[in-house]
Design a binder for these strands. Sequence first.
DNA 1: ACTCTATGTCGAATATTTTTAACATTGAGT
DNA 2: ACTCAATGTTAAAAATATTCGACATAGAGT
Lengths: 73, 73
Amino acid sequence: MAKPPFTNDIRTLRFLAGEMTQGDLGDRVGVTRQTIAAIEQGKYSPSLEVAFRIARCFDKPLEAVFQWSDDAD
Amino acid sequence: MAKPPFTNDIRTLRFLAGEMTQGDLGDRVGVTRQTIAAIEQGKYSPSLEVAFRIARCFDKPLEAVFQWSDDAD
DNA sequence: ACTCTATGTCGAATATTTTTAACATTGAGT
DNA sequence: ACTCAATGTTAAAAATATTCGACATAGAGT
């Protein structure tokens, strides 16, 4: 289960969005708090659908939440 | 296996990118041609990593390739 | 010290994506 | 008519994401 080649700003965005907890975000996205925790820590690559839903919770474009960071192509 | 709440322009982008075939794109992305075909037809929601790699093949931001289209939320 | 909430983590179960191999169709070129 | 490349499709297996339940820790407030 290799770590994904991108980083994310979920943790920061949660706090900027008024101390939103992992559980809150999970509820709004429709996944569990464990899933949010794992994605936040880059443990795996979420589905595009979940990624979209997270971005929409913050009213941000996808790429404001997830940033590609692979050196290779 | 519900269809994902977004559309994509992969087919168009392939042709704009010089008649790139599903197989070519699959090779560049690192997945099989069947996977490209399934994503192109909206059969399921790819991983964020695959979505990013596809977008990068076309030098486009993710949201130029995949467009959220859910009425709910 | 106690309690609560938020978070980290883990193992096992379930769901979804991706692969592989195979066969069918269509259109272009010869 | 034949061939070949591109695509559609399908079933089964493999890989990966997600859930669920549980337990641990750290910090804030009382």
